[in-house]
Design a protein around this nucleic acid. Structure first.
Lengths: 184, 184
DNA sequence: GAATATACGGGGTCCTTACCCCGGTTGTCT
DNA sequence: AGACAACCGGGGTAAGGACCCCGTATATTC
């Protein structure tokens, strides 16, 4: 792969992330290419289909999540680690409009690459959750799938309250308190 | 308004609700007309724009919610009333794919009619929430806006877990427990 | 039951958007 | 430096969908 090709591919990804984050996933691909200062042809050579662009972005996002989860996994306080991760989802939601939409849709077509990354994320989450459950800071009657879904909810909520950080945090607090709660 | 016109308008609304509920909001309007056994022209005379169709559907949905909230407002146990409403949101989510999407979008353009209905819903919710807070069954440090947003989350979560009623209920439980929690 | 306003149908238009093609250009390797 | 392969640009194509038009049909009124 030639150097300029690699450079352009990176640039396209970067601009696409930016566009989707601030305006949602309905931004036309040609528009993304234009803003990147590149031709539509270049876009479609690197990402033959819009879906493939989504895939690349989702992959990088999930990779980030995995990193974050792994680095938190070593924190001394398991509860702090887990709820810190939740807070991270709010931060993400505040500046990533549309990501949840992509993620939700991505789960459906179950692309192999994405499934693999999701698997990694689940492993990392598992560790976070189990430690937090072990220390009694997260209720024991829920599983990874539930947590992932709830994290998604936190993200979506934050997306929707774009601009009202206060409310996004209150919503996260409620959900986290629910995760802490001891079931009767 | 002629009798057949009224009939057809009703039918279009009914089919549209059904389509959006089961397949999401991207179903083409012409397709809805076709399934209703009517021409595209009829569709566009009654609902000049797709948005106006959304509006009509959202209005009827909100009206339903208001009804439900009002009828629950008279229940003897304030907590049961409020959490019963939450459960209703799950039921709705299980069979209304896309509604949350419309509702979220609807908030943005703030059409006058919708704003008026939303106001009604807020009043009804206010009563439910305040009674539940008064009886100590819902935490006191959140407002109507938070509750509305969280109800939306419950709805969305249920939408996403279409088919897995068990998980949808678990997620609702977590959020509801969060709403019950006493803040430190 | 005739007259008239109203509503219907569905082919047609226009626009948006994903995706392709090919002549020109630019890295890369020797 | 020169040759060649890879890459770029951006007009071009095709498909899909929202919305319109107008000849035909039907409800309403007397």
């Amino acid at each position: 792969m030639r150097a300029d090709a690699r450079r352009n591919r990176e640039r396209l990804l970067e601009v696409a992330r930016e566009c989707f984050a601030t305006e949602g996933v309905s931004v036309p691909v040609d528009e993304i290419a234009r803003r990147a200062g590149l031709g539509a042809g270049t876009m479609h050579r690197h990402f033959p289909t819009k879906e493939s662009l989504f895939e690349a972005i989702v992959l990088s996002h999930i990779a980030q999540l995995v990193d974050e989860a792994r680095s938190l996994a070593e924190a001394e306080d398991p509860g702090e680690a887990f709820f810190g991760f939740c807070l991270g989802m709010v931060e993400r939601g505040m500046k990533n409009r549309g990501l949840a939409e992509i993620l939700a849709g991505a789960g459906i077509d179950a692309k192999a690459r994405i499934a693999a990354e999701t698997e990694q994320l689940d492993r990392a989450l598992e560790r976070l959750v189990e430690r937090a459950q072990g220390s009694g800071q997260v209720r024991a009657d829920i599983g990874i799938a539930d947590v992932r879904a709830l994290l998604n909810s936190i993200h979506t909520a934050a997306e929707r309250e774009q601009g009202d950080r206060r409310m996004a945090l209150r919503m996260m607090t409620v959900i986290c308190d629910g995760l802490r709660a001891n079931p009767r």
